[in-house]
Write a protein that binds this DNA or RNA. Structure first.
Lengths: 134, 134, 134, 134
DNA sequence: GTGGTCTAGACCACA
DNA sequence: GTGGTCTAGACCACT
């Protein structure tokens, strides 16, 4: 059960709304919160739920349709692709991108690979490693 | 010795150029490639080196001056702050942000904390973890 | 013997379903797969066979009736026109349109008339002409 | 020298304006009427020339950028890709699609491959072959 | 009701 | 000046 309304509460002014909604969808697909073949809300429904203009939602769906994650059926609505491979590919891609960006960034800040792991583990334990060497 | 010209070759059209240049400066400060008190190129110089509009560099320097990472000395040029603590604080902040974003993202994609470490280690070893459970 | 069910499998999301069904009928008329005077399925029957909304079939039959390709006999069903000239005219029209669109397009892409023939022959032989001059 | 204003005179109500403009651009790229690296009109300029809303042009450019045929430079304008291979690929794709659609259509209307060539040649000579056999 | 397109106009970030 | 985003509202085609 997805709480769509909540999506609208967390928009970050630094990024376009439509990108943020796409990201929410992508994550929901990857986590399995929205299943293949499932119908997603109509443009007007989601527009109401998120308190966002219908054209913005339209753009979101358009973008996702381009990526073949959803299909539109005229007069019927939008449906998630039946192709589970697409979803799996999306997960791989998003995870990959995330790791790549992170590692690139940490290295650019002067961290050795071992440091990256160390710091991350410390971070996940809730603490912060002291800023040694760097 | 910094190869400024190279900065200009890697601009990513998806983000504002001035942000990317600020980022390059930040990384150079943190890595110690530019030292406290050191003089940095004039707006015109850097504008030529990077093949970027002078207004853009202007904004970069404004931004960094606001953050007190550099100071302008009228008629003389721009100089990195003498305050090493600023630089250290910058490093902490950038590393922190990077880890925070990464962890948030990986969790949103359905990864448990242990998975995050595992996948990262696999990634750093140059391999890819098999896409178990997700 | 027409395999109606198959028509429904090949719908192209980019065009209205009702147009695609009309097209299938037109081609069947022209090829002689459906003969003059022959009865065609009722709206409900075809709706079931193609897994398509009955309103959509309704529109298909309306359209074809307007073009006098079929007639409705109340309470009895829909029948193909008895007028073979209509069918022959349809064939001419469809072939004409097809050639016109093709030639217009190829010329707009910079092909001379001789090139059009050449490329088409190569295409029909299953090969691709080498991309000379264009 | 491109006569942009003319593009606006020939819009066909059956298709979205933005698609028709994209098509015009594609053909101009393929024919070499617009060269790699060249700047194309700004959104507002073309909007005025074609008497079409700026948002529609925006969509056109967006679409072409997605296909990596043009690139946007913030505050500067849109420029055709430097990559001639993209253009060549576009030509091949468009020609291919055109031939494929044509052949598929002619065959569906009951024409043998030899007939297709024959009729096309007759058509190009300006005459119409008599509707034999089909 | 659904999606798809188009217009008009606004505001912001960028060069 | 440029592109990018968003809103509001209209109209059409389709199911």
């Amino acid at each position: 059960m997805i709480r769509w309304e909540q999506w609208g509460l967390t928009f970050d002014d630094r990024y376009p709304i439509y990108r943020q909604i796409v990201q929410q969808f992508n994550r929901a697909f990857v986590r399995g919160d929205i299943l293949t073949g499932e119908r997603i809300p109509s443009i007007r429904e989601l527009s109401n739920l998120l308190k966002v203009n219908a054209n913005t939602i339209q753009r979101v769906y358009q973008e996702m349709e381009r990526d073949e994650l959803i299909n539109s059926r005229r007069g019927t609505g939008y449906f998630v692709t039946e192709d589970q491979d697409r979803i799996d590919g999306l997960r791989l891609q998003l995870v990959e991108e995330s790791m790549q960006r992170f590692v690139e960034e940490m290295r650019a800040l002067g961290n050795q690979d071992e440091d990256i792991i160390d710091r991350l583990q410390a971070y996940l334990r809730g603490g912060e490693p002291d800023a040694k060497g760097a």
